[in-house]
Amino acid sequence: MNERPKAGPRWGMAIDLDRCTACQACSTACQMENNIPPPTPEAAAQRRAIRWMDLVPYLEGEFPRVKLRLLPRPCMHCDNPPCIKVCPVGATVKGQDGIVAQVYPRCIGCRYCTTACPYTVRYFNWYEPSWPGDLGQALNPDVSVRPKGVVEKCTFCHHRLQKARDLAAAEKRELGPGEYNTACAEACPTQAIVFGDLDDPHSEVARMTRSPRAFRLLEDLGTEPKVIYLREGEA
């Protein structure tokens, strides 16, 4: 009898804003892990800095009780992604594992996906990438460097999943929980960012999504994001 293959894990992320100190370690870890060149001051002033994991500033409350907040924002890896619908060449695809990937060699750089994404998480390579000093010699060999003219974005560190899967396959076993983690979650000093299988009821990330504080960004758009935020508590 053929056993029906078990549906693969649904990778997702939970970000507890109560624990987040806005230290930006996630953003920096992401830059290093994914070979994102640090933006020059000119590029940053031109609003062309690439930050797959960015801290979005927003104001909370009304004057005079106003607080400036920072929201860590990776790609939402929507289950109903507006970017995939509009890509004319299939350069952005959702894999079996639910991760929305970008196929750099196929992208024609029309930037339709960047305009269609309601979260503005997609970035464009305006120039050929360059690293200051010796930084270019310390690139991560697992992540391809993107050429000029293509779109890129957070991949949930997909290369880590491939590596973990390969290791498990070589050792003839299932991929265990905790074997695949993103660089931002790993770097977070307060464990505000938790990554894992949303469909595994025992995983930490699934437990967090059941919290009454849980919400998703722009939920009413029906994009079904797989990044879940936990609202700050009253305290």
Binding site: C87, A91, R106, C107, G109, K148, G149
Partner: peptide, 17 residues
């Protein structure tokens, strides 16, 4: 951004877009 890949529109064209 990549005019050199123009033919991708024919080779890999997706009518959902």
């Amino acid at each position: 951004g990549r005019p050199d890949r123009l033919l991708n529109i024919i080779k890999h064209g997706r009518f959902q877009s």
